[in-house]
């Protein structure tokens, strides 16, 4: 194994389990959207999408096995984007 790589091997079987989870979450998000939960529908859809993103990021993109710095900058960008959204909507709701 080269020193350049962190060398963590995610097993075939584990990858397939992650994929099955992703498909289950897709079915959940479609099913939940059939009910009209008012404003909660969007929040539910975004929550499920974020769980799926977490799975893809952690295991398919190997972030779980990267060093702390790499994890920190990715989380930083995600937090930054969520903050921008919160600021935008707090502004809209304030002037509504």
């Amino acid at each position: 194994m080269s020193e350049d790589h962190n060398g963590h091997v995610v097993d075939y079987k584990f990858n397939i389990l992650v994929w099955i989870d992703l498909l289950i979450f897709t079915i959940i998000t479609i099913e939940v959207a059939q009910f009209d939960l008012q404003d909660l529908t969007v929040i539910m859809a975004l929550l499920v999408a974020s769980v799926k993103t977490f799975l893809v990021g952690s295991y398919f993109m190997h972030l779980k096995f990267e060093n702390k710095f790499m994890q920190a900058i990715v989380i930083g960008v995600a937090v930054l984007f969520v903050l921008v959204l919160i600021l935008l909507f707090s502004d809209y709701l304030f002037f509504k």
């Binding site: 959207a33 529908t41 190997h62």
Partner: peptide, 29 residues
């Protein structure tokens, strides 16, 4: 295998973007 890993990272990002596009356009109530 870093080129494969980087290609994979790009591909997963394309997947993640679709993970958000799908509910926002097709499922929005």
């Amino acid at each position: 295998y870093i080129y494969l890993e980087n290609g994979g990272l790009y591909w997963h990002l394309v997947d993640v973007i679709w993970i958000y596009l799908f509910p926002l356009f097709y499922l929005i109530i």
